[in-house]
Amino acid sequence: MPPLVLHHLSVNYQDLRALRNINLTIHPGQLVGIFGPNGAGKSTLIKAMLGLIPRVTGRVTWGEADLSAHLERIAYLPQRSQIDWHFPATAWDVVMMGRVKPTGWLRPFAASSRRLAQAALERVGMAELAHRPIGALSGGQQQRVFLARALAQEAEIFCFDEPLVGVDQATTGIIFKVFRDLAAAGKMVLVINHDLGESITNFDQLILLNQELIAAGPRQWVLSPEHMRRAYGGEVGFWGHVA
């Protein structure tokens, strides 16, 4: 699988520059964390990369072609707050949404799609609760259902926007296990996070943002005091223990 390359990506939010000239190469087979303070443009980076919001300048290429030509290979998990959790759907319905695009227009879901959905639910430990309404699940269970949807999609590029917000310890463990397995299977796994505690050690590579790219590369190197000061300003003090 080729790397994903961002060329001169800039994005405006209303009339302000939200992301400035991001140049970045992301390799598959590694667990990549996207970090930065609030308002750093982490979600904006993912959304602009996937073409969900307009860019001012820049291209995103995957191999020879633009990433926009390969959207069916992308699984995207929105932030929790973007979802109406009272929507009339069961966990199973949500996971099957991952099979909509691969199935194609005017066709019913194939038995193979149902098997993929079932396997994905088992992988995240949610098979028994498949027929519960999503609104009746806990926050961690809801995130696992969304993870199962991404798995069922059989994507190559996985983008998760804050998948660890509001989830329990057990779910965090399951989610990171799936992430590591995906990376080990050669997939590209991008995870927005802002927890700089223990969980940061799960990532192989980090992308540190604050409206511009501060650093990207191996975790230890990115978490240098100099980089952290540039990203977080004066709050650097409590960083020492992390790296």
Binding site: L50, I83, M97, G98, V100, T103
Partner: peptide, 16 residues
């Protein structure tokens, strides 16, 4: 199936 995905999660549907 397309309308269900779109009405539940427009961003996810668009990304796919």
């Amino acid at each position: 199936k397309e309308l269900l995905f779109y009405s539940f999660d427009p961003m996810g549907a668009r990304a796919s």
